[in-house]
């Protein structure tokens, strides 16, 4: 049992205080965003954004949900892509990280370099597109939303590898190896459970990236059947901007609440994601992991 001293209590109180301030700083802009999305557009243009709604209007949401079937399907696609993508990504990332954490593997440094190098140089969009459209031929399939650029990041591999290397006592591994356990078994039975905090962290960050991605949809899909929610929302907002700003070129007349739609689009993209967070975050709490496995 831990003994709490006075200084501990002070630290705890201070920690809470800091977090309350930071959370407020993060929440307030989001409140502004949401309030703007349910405001009256004319009032927003006239008076700017603030933390309470200016007037009240759901016009922006009405416009977006005009096309409810498209939005609904796009949400489903996004959820699917996020779940499958995060899962596969964690698998590839963790196995590679485990391999790289093994000190006695020959070529470890070369392979590490192989990974880091990808963070520095890239060939640009056209060659990448060429690979995925001509060689791997992934266009207009669901994997097109999952694989290119997102499936595995060097940064994540290195984070997880660090955790394996520095946070997991090597005695656990050694004793398992002496017991005759194979590496795959050690990975699945010991390393994965022990690495839940970092896996959850990387999983959360990967899920966010999958949720927010629209570029793969843009490059690799030609029809709308697999459009993700961010792709739908992005096309909606950029086209609105374009039509509004280029009426000299386009001659389109359209009476839309641009300022509030913009905010509503952001809100619709963010809010569902918040529901996912608690799923990952339960693994962040201190003290549940090492002890649990050791018994």
């Amino acid at each position: 049992m831990m003994v709490y001293s006075r200084s501990d209590k002070i630290v705890k109180t201070l920690a809470n205080l800091v977090m309350i301030v930071l959370s407020a700083g993060a929440l307030l802009p989001f409140v502004v965003l949401f309030m703007a999305s349910i405001s009256d557009n004319d009032l927003i243009v006239r008076l700017g954004y603030t933390i309470w709604p200016r007037g009240f209007s759901l016009e922006a949401y009405a416009y977006i949900f005009d096309n409810i079937s498209v939005i609904g399907r796009a949400y489903l696609i996004t959820v699917f892509v996020t779940i499958v993508g995060t899962f596969v990504s964690l698998l590839v990332t963790n196995t590679a990280a485990y391999a790289l954490s093994h000190d006695r593997m020959p070529l470890r440094r070369v392979l590490m370099f192989y990974i880091v190098f990808t963070m520095l140089f890239n060939g640009g969009l056209v060659p990448t597109y060429y690979v995925y459209s001509q060689i791997v031929q992934i266009r207009n399939t669901l994997p097109a939303l999952i694989v290119p650029n997102l499936l595995c990041s060097a940064f994540n591999v290195i984070l997880v590898r660090n955790y394996y290397r520095f946070s997991i006592p090597s005695t656990i591994l050694d004793s398992a190896r002496i017991d005759g356990a194979g590496e795959f078994r050690i990975f699945l039975r010991i390393m994965l459970p022990l690495s839940l905090p970092i896996t959850a962290t990387v999983g959360l960050l990967t899920a966010i990236i999958y949720w927010n991605d629209w570029q793969n949809g843009l490059y690799y899909l030609s029809g709308p059947e697999y459009f993700s929610i961010q792709q739908v929302l992005r096309v909606m907002s950029t086209d609105l901007m374009f039509l509004a700003n280029n009426s000299t070129n386009t001659g389109v007349t359209r009476n839309l609440p641009l300022s509030t739609i913009r905010m509503a689009i952001a809100a619709i993209g963010i809010i569902p994601l918040l529901l996912v967070f608690p799923f990952f975050e339960k693994y962040f709490v201190k003290g549940i992991t090492i002890g649990a496995v050791k018994e």
């Binding site: 590679a96 140089f121 060659p127 060097a154 591999v157 795959f184 990975f187």
Partner: peptide, 28 residues
């Protein structure tokens, strides 16, 4: 020899980075 399981575990990431990053690098 002893590291073969590790190489196998690294393989998916190796192939992924080869396709996703190294093949397009000729664009440089």
């Amino acid at each position: 020899k002893r590291s073969i399981p590790f190489y196998i575990m690294f393989l998916p990431a190796f192939i992924y980075f080869l396709i996703n990053n190294y093949l397009p690098m000729f664009g440089i």
